[in-house]
Simulated assay, not measured.
Amino acid sequence: MMWVEDWTPNAACKSAQPDQLFVRGAEQNKAKQLCAGCPVRTECLAEALDNQIEWGVWGGMTERERRALLRRRPTASWRTVLETAREQSAGVPAGRAAAV
């Protein structure tokens, strides 16, 4: 799968009310369900991590879950990390999918 630069038009949440994604507690699980089948979930998550977005559910992760990742790898380019992981899981040699 190729990385989608302009991912927002393809997001599963594009027609959702913002209040559905910026919730607390158990309501976050409902918001995460919206992300479950999203075709651009990875791009959304990379955006939130690389820009250290503090609020809301992005890419199926809560702010607490994202903070934990950021603490483990504070200087990572999350786009690179997630893009490489996606390529490896699809069996595409690293760097090849971007060139296709």
Rank of each mutant, 00 (worst) to 15 (best):
E54Y: 14
E54G: 09
E54C: 02
E54S: 14
E54D: 12
W55K: 01
G56H: 01
G56W: 02
V57L: 01
V57K: 02
W58L: 13
W58S: 11
W58V: 04
G59V: 11
G59N: 00
G59E: 00
G59T: 08
G60W: 03
G60F: 14
M61Q: 13
M61W: 05
M61F: 06
M61G: 01
M61K: 14
T62C: 11
T62K: 06
E63P: 15
E63L: 03
E63N: 07
R64N: 08
R64Y: 11
R64T: 09
R64Q: 09
R64S: 13
E65T: 13
E65Q: 06
R66T: 08
R66S: 07
R67A: 10
R67S: 11
R67E: 06
R67I: 09
A68I: 11
L69P: 03
L70Y: 00
L70T: 01
L70G: 00
R71V: 14
R72S: 15
R72E: 14
R72Y: 13
P74Y: 09
A76S: 08
A76L: 05
S77Y: 10
S77T: 14
S77W: 08
W78Q: 00
W78L: 00
W78S: 01
R79Q: 07
R79C: 14
R79L: 15
R79S: 05
T80F: 05
T80V: 08
V81C: 02
V81S: 01
V81F: 03
V81R: 01
L82P: 02
L82A: 05
L82D: 00
L82I: 09
L82C: 04
E83Q: 07
E83C: 10
E83D: 10
A85Y: 05
A85S: 04
A85M: 13
R86Y: 04
E87K: 13
E87A: 09
E87V: 08
E87L: 15
E87S: 14
E87T: 08
